[in-house]
Design a protein around this nucleic acid. Structure first.
Lengths: 191, 191
DNA sequence: CGGGCCTTTGACTGGTTTCAACTTCTGTGG
DNA sequence: CCACAGAAGTTGAAACCAGTCAAAGGCCCG
């Protein structure tokens, strides 16, 4: 299963199996059951997660008490509150398992030590963040460009498996609309 | 003036002045007048910009013909359509100078060569992207969490100089509301 | 089989946009 | 240095997208 992480690293930089064995020692493998909270809003953001299997969700709770999802992380995605992690501050967000999940976790200190020991990994993380940043730019574009209805249908067509895996109220929370309105949208065009 | 770029790199990694001199040869210094377009939507995204002085804006035009700003870049910010740049595809966005600006530009090929020659810079860009990604996460949070009115006042209080430098219709375009409504919001509480 | 969570439905509300007209600012040429 | 045209900002009325609230129905899992 760690094999998968090895391959992901090697998509962006080159490391040997020996190196990987040592790299692995900086991480912990953890399993979380569905709905378990990995990171609490308001507590020190000290952990960076890599999803081996399953699905994580990062969200915050707005004034009205509704949960707003910022991101999902499926297999081979990294997830944390990056600003808080960098600055070792309290996180603004919660991270929760959407499904039973298996993740790699590394704390801030270890990530720093890891990058000192293996500068090659700077290239790996540069690529990971560059890509994630690009994706975040596109997310902002979609939010502004599309109506809620268009957001849903675009999302559904682009990530059909997501619709299968994730309950509808979480899709609504990710797209930024209410479950009621999402329900209404779906009934308008049944296609 | 390049001094400033040298300092910025050294905030995140360590390079000597000799190295910097060579690094500099990979870039071009360019000046753009106010309102000049640096990058066209629909054309190959081949350039990464670093703002030495001035202000750039990245935007797209929605179906109704309104321009929606994705990001501003002030001094010491990098700007491009990152997904398109990575994949060497057509950009979804335009980049335009908001003020008379002085920028460093590097094309994709040169950036690759630069990073091969100076692997130390992977660390620099890792940090740049990590930070930018974190900022983009927060942006999404604000968009969902705040009403348009709250967005404006929060933005105004957090970046007062921005309000000075940038015309109001661009602020509106960045915050995702109409100039008319922004005008109304301002008149509601004159403080 | 039952309870709680998820989804659906409908009526009402309001924040925000749209459109159009008017006013103010800005910069460029005479 | 003034005049004027175009750009930017303001104001108000009408329309609408999407949220809120409440209640009923469906479904999963113990």
């Amino acid at each position: 299963m760690l094999n998968q992480f090895f391959n992901h690293i090697n998509k962006f930089t080159e490391i040997s199996e020996e190196e990987f064995t040592e790299i692995g020692t900086y991480f912990e493998v953890r399993k979380y059951g569905k709905k378990v909270v990995l990171m609490e809003a308001g507590s020190l953001c000290n952990t960076h997660y890599f999803v081996l299997k399953g699905c994580l969700q990062m969200y915050f709770t707005n004034e009205k008490g509704a949960e707003q999802t910022l991101q999902f992380a499926l297999e081979n995605w990294w997830l944390t509150d990056n600003l808080a992690f960098r600055q070792q501050r309290k996180s603004d967000f919660c991270i929760q398992a959407v499904e039973n999940s298996k993740v790699l976790s590394i704390d801030f200190k270890n990530q720093e030590l890891l990058l000192e020991k293996f500068p090659k990994l700077e290239k790996y993380f540069r690529n990971v963040f560059e890509k994630a940043y690009g994706a975040a730019q596109m997310r902002v574009k979609y939010i502004f460009d599309y109506s809620k209805e268009e957001m849903y249908f675009t999302f559904r067509d682009q990530y059909p498996e997501f619709i299968q895996r994730v309950p509808q109220y979480l899709i609504a929370s990710f797209l930024g609309l209410t479950p009621e309105y999402l329900s209404e949208i779906k009934s308008k065009r049944l296609s």
